[in-house]
Design a protein around this nucleic acid. Structure first.
Length: 427
RNA sequence: GUGGCAUUAGCUCAGUUGGUUAGAGCACCAGACUGUGACUCUGGGGGUCGCCGGUUCAAGUCCGGUAUGCCACCCCA
């Protein structure tokens, strides 16, 4: 029989790995809370049409990366991103009528049917925020700032925010025409992919990495030179705020983003210590989406941090929280002989009932082996229970850090005594 | 979806121009005088060489397919 294995592009997060993940989740949760964002949890799957309508019919995600399940009348898709579900929930519960402006954050798994690679899998975790109901440029700055604060709090180094504006629909329509007019006579020197892009998504031609396409890209018209004065002003304001707050950033005309719903500010946070897949966070403004999904014409802006690439970057930078760690219990009750096993089990249970984290041996190990295991698991105190002690109604407690050993009466005060011995624990 | 590289004990890897019982380090287990860890020493268990098929007297070593991972694309967190 073939060996059982997790489906392609998925992974098991073993216990040693969980602390690293929680470090990212909890750090971000704390930062989001400080900025007034509240957690929202939406289903892992949605009706397929939600993503088709929001992301756009011709985007890669919709065309070839959706995990879709059809059962009779229903057609659902495992969420490939978090924004559309949040907007859907916001509208479904009429939150726009209760209080139009609301800030949310979410953390959880997303799914895309892609070819796996390091930092890119078919099930991955994202931590994101969505500020719905306002078109204020201050919010564009706040959201970017928030991403920056998260990475700062995580202790990530060598990252930078790349941002750009893609204006509103009118700006883009105007520029699309300008770009097509510019590229059309130059198509002979463009690569095969760009031949598709001319019709499909001209903007992406500017981001082409093929060497032969570089000359015509360098001379290409700049979007910022063709946007309305209002678009230009709001973008400049956001950039100025970030500059004033020392957020490492760069205006990058190549940032275009893959989903149709984006407008105005779009950005990515990139970490230089990663390879070609260096984006650890992506986001932007999506002023048309709420209306597209049947709500009022309200602005919104958000981002998603990719937990996997973030962990990868922190690992490469040797972040201490990335070290595989076992969250062991601090107390291990060791039966000295076979006759002491049940008593040891019951003592362990009393300690747990008293609120202490404790464990005992279940493998009939020798005392020596129990000590070895205790040492490896980072146990602080070993509570020995043997014939001699039991005869005296006592237990022997050894502090593995100091090596000191004391005998304590096995009475109601034992738990408190152990607790006080744990208190001055070193990190 | 495209192109390339990889796949040998739990982990990281050796394995010579295809040739007898496939190795190392770490990890694991057990010992080193009588109820005790971390250091040291000794010993031990553990591998259908990813899987299927082919070439050959003989394949971990060559060829094909397949699975998975990785790298670069597409695109993206």
């Amino acid at each position: 029989m073939a060996r059982l294995q997790a489906p392609r592009g998925t992974e098991d997060l073993l216990p040693e790995r969980i602390p690293a993940l929680d470090f990212v989740f909890e750090t971000c949760r704390e930062v989001f809370g400080r900025y007034g964002y509240r957690e929202i949890r939406t289903p892992l799957f949605e009706e397929t049409s939600l993503f088709v309508r929001s992301l756009g019919e011709v985007t890669d995600v919709v065309e070839k990366e959706m995990f879709t399940v059809a059962r009779g009348e229903t057609n659902v898709t495992f969420r490939p991103e978090g924004t559309a579900p949040v907007v859907r929930a916001y509208l479904e519960h009429n939150l726009d009528k209760v209080r139009a402006f609301q800030k949310f954050f979410y953390m959880g798994p997303m799914f895309r049917f892609e070819r796996p690679q390091a930092g890119r899998s078919r099930q991955f975790h994202q931590v994101g925020v969505e500020a719905l109901g306002s078109a204020s440029p201050l919010l564009d700055a706040e959201v970017i700032l928030l991403a920056h604060r998260c990475f700062q709090a995580l202790g990530l180094a060598n990252y930078r925010v790349h941002l750009n504006t893609i204006g509103d629909a009118a700006d883009r329509e105007r520029f699309r025409a300008v770009l097509k007019a510019y590229f059309t006579p130059l198509m002979a020197q463009r690569c095969a992919d760009c031949q598709q892009r001319l019709q499909r998504n001209v903007f992406r031609m500017l981001d082409c990495k093929v060497a032969g396409c570089q000359p015509s890209n360098r001379a290409a018209p700049h979007f910022l030179d063709h946007v309305s004065a209002a678009t230009r002003a709001r973008f400049d304001q956001s950039v100025a705020i970030l500059a004033g707050l020392d957020v490492p950033h760069a205006v990058d005309p190549a940032i275009v983003r893959g989903f149709d719903y984006y407008t105005h500010t779009v950005f990515e946070v990139r970490c230089h210590d990663l390879g070609a897949r260096d984006t650890v966070c992506g986001g932007g403004r999506y002023d048309g989406l709420i209306e597209d999904l049947g709500g009022p014409a309200l602005g919104a802006v958000g981002f998603a941090i990719g937990v996997t690439p973030t962990l990868l970057a922190l690992e490469k930078q040797g972040h201490p929280a990335m070290r595989p760690a076992e969250r062991g219990v601090p107390i291990l009750v060791a039966p000295v002989g076979a006759a002491d096993r049940e008593a040891a089990f019951l003592l362990t249970e009393r300690l747990r009932a008293a609120g202490l984290a404790a464990d005992t041996d279940y493998e009939d190990k020798s005392l020596k082996a129990i000590f070895k295991a205790a040492d490896k698991r980072g146990v602080r105190l070993v509570v020995m229970l043997g014939g001699d002690e039991r005869a005296r109604g006592a237990v022997k407690v050894k502090d593995l850090q100091s090596g000191a050993e004391v005998e304590l009466p096995d009475d109601a005060a034992l738990a408190a005594g152990l607790r006080s011995r744990l208190a001055p624990a070193a990190p």
